[in-house]
């Protein structure tokens, strides 16, 4: 037998043995590995953009450039009641299970029905300010790209702390029928990284992904800031059914009035 033939036979038999060995292992279901990779990838992509923006802002500040307050809206007063087109989320999310990595939360309502219009960053800021616990909001920022991403600073009297929310529509995966009103919520805590101290993702059956991030990076030299939200508060915000790449027209209209111009984060 020539060396070439021996090599080919060896390769064929080794390959068959590896395949057989793999088959005998009975691989577990693959799960949502692709969806998870897309979610992680999108989050990392946003972090990179925001990281660049923070660097630019820091450089501008170091150079004595004053960012004008002209475009910074004043504090938004909370509306006395939600708009009639929207339905409040369920008040009894399973907070007792907060220690779990992933929760399934029934929002208490189906996703808002009726006419929806393309979401805007201003509408997101408007909704976020309605959902936040009491405090003064400031330092608003929005993504420059098509990303629906907003951030603001919340001061409940103990100093400012940042909250960031992003909304996206991920590629629907699998053939599971929609389960209206059910959001899969994932809580990630990373005390070692001030940018991702707490992150709560809510994924809806239609592919809507809401990410609430609670970073604790220091605004100035010194120790990290306190988290702006508790885990329960972040879950409640993430699981609100009014978030989406399309939102209630009333929120969009009110948002445009309240936040006509907001500094862009990544330019």
């Amino acid at each position: 037998m020539t060396e070439d033939l021996r090599a080919r036979e060896l390769q064929a038999r080794l390959r068959a043995d590896l395949q057989a060995g793999l088959h005998a292992e009975c691989p577990p279901p693959l799960g949502d590995v692709v969806g998870a990779a897309i979610r992680d990838g999108r989050r990392l992509r946003r972090k990179r953009r925001i990281g660049s923006a923070v660097t630019v802002i820091a450089l501008l500040a170091a150079g004595g450039v004053i960012v004008g307050d002209r475009v910074r809206p004043e504090r938004v007063e909370r509306p006395a009641a939600l708009s009639p087109q929207t339905v409040p989320p369920g008040a009894t999310a399973p907070m007792a299970a907060v220690q779990a990595r992933t929760l399934t939360i029934h929002s208490g309502t189906v996703r808002a029905e009726g006419t929806r219009t393309k979401a805007t960053s201003a509408a997101m800021l408007h909704l976020l300010t309605m959902l936040l616990p009491p405090g003064r909001t400031s330092h608003y920022g929005v993504s420059a790209d098509d990303d629906l991403l907003v951030q603001l600073s919340l001061d409940d009297g103990r100093g400012p702390a940042m909250v960031r929310v992003a909304v996206d529509k991920i590629v629907p995966l699998g053939d599971e029928p929609p389960h209206a009103g059910i959001a899969q919520v994932t809580i990630s805590s990373n005390p070692g990284n001030c940018r991702t101290t707490l992150a709560v993702d809510a994924t809806w059956p239609d592919g809507t992904l809401v990410e609430v991030e609670v970073p604790t990076c220091p605004a100035t030299a010194g120790g990290p800031s306190r988290p702006a939200l508790t885990t329960d508060e972040a879950i409640r915000i993430a699981a609100d059914p009014r978030w989406g790449v399309a939102m209630d027209p009333g929120l969009v209209a009110d948002g445009a009035k309240l936040f006509p111009a907001v500094p862009v984060l990544n330019r």
Binding site: V33, A37, I38, D40, G41
Partner: peptide
Amino acid sequence: QTALTKLFL
């Protein structure tokens, strides 16, 4: 998943 995330990026 990590490899796919890197590929996505």
